[in-house]
């Protein structure tokens, strides 16, 4: 729902204008705010940043060792609760403390899902989000022997820049695609430059994604394949490579 539509349904709604750069929402404020939250969360366990506002947190050790919350001595657990059930219970206590600490130090609220593996925890978090529209999401992982392990990674594993063109704003010429790819590559180059300066990191692969449909067949389910190539630093080179990737993808898409 767009702002003017929301205003019709809820006249009292307070709308704010987010910062805009290159006719796109500027997410740098959110990105930096996310780093503040991650800094607090990472005190309790291995932390893997999953997106701009999501992290996986492995609290296994904290749940096992947290002083005063020893799962072996929990008196209120059911008799058939096994060790892993008790770890989850300890996890809820730790997450509650973390959420309080995040709120106290950053003013942000978090939603959490707690489970023995990342996927289930993520689903739990998603269910909670239906009822609690919090800004930042925390997912906890209490056991390492089910599913993928939480990777210790406080920095993002990739950088991206995207733009949607809904309805009549859909692009239909190579020139318009090139214009937007140039903008997106500029933004991506800025992120890469910051990462290089601040963290001494470089990216090695450039990937282009596009959503497309044929004007004569708007119900087509055919996907525009993602295309990748080695990433060469330099905005102009990235812009050139992105356009080449697009044209390769378009060629395949059109068969």
């Amino acid at each position: 729902m767009r702002g003017h539509e929301a205003k019709q349904v809820f006249p009292e709604i307070q709308l704010i204008q987010v910062p805009v750069v290159r006719v796109k929402a500027d997410l740098n404020t959110c990105r930096n705010a996310g780093s503040e939250v991650v800094a607090v969360l990472s005190r309790k366990g291995r932390c893997e940043r999953a997106s701009i506002d999501e992290v996986y947190l492995d609290l296994t050790d904290a749940a096992e060792k947290n002083s005063g919350v020893d799962p072996k001595n929990m008196q209120n657990c059911r008799k058939d609760a096994d060790h892993h059930d008790k770890l989850l219970a300890c996890g809820t206590v730790i997450v509650a403390e973390l959420r309080t600490q995040v709120l106290k130090e950053t003013d942000f609220t978090c939603s959490a899902g707690i489970a023995h593996n990342k996927e289930t925890a993520w689903r739990g978090k998603a269910a909670r989000m239906l009822w609690h529209q919090h800004w930042c999401l925390v997912v906890e992982h209490c056991k390492r022997d089910h599913g993928e392990e939480v990777q210790g990674c406080l920095l993002p594993k990739s950088h991206g820049s995207e733009k949607t063109f809904p309805g009549p704003r859909a692009l239909k010429t190579i020139a318009s695609v090139q214009h937007w790819l140039n903008d997106l590559c500029e933004e991506l180059a800025e992120c890469l430059g910051s990462d290089l300066d601040q963290n001494k990191r470089i990216a090695q692969t450039l990937t282009l994604h596009a959503r497309a449909y044929r004007s004569s067949d708007s119900d087509s389910q055919k996907n525009f394949s993602s295309k990748s190539c080695p990433l060469m630093y330099g905005t102009a080179k990235m812009q050139e490579d992105a356009l080449n990737l697009f044209q390769t993808g378009l060629h395949e898409y059109l068969g």
């Binding site: 594993k157 950088h159 997106l184 990462d195 990191r201 044929r214």
Partner: peptide, 18 residues
Amino acid sequence: GWRITGLSVSASKIVEIP
């Protein structure tokens, strides 16, 4: 003809400079 309703570019396989 074709229509593009979304574009994204991303950079991955990020490593620290040795």
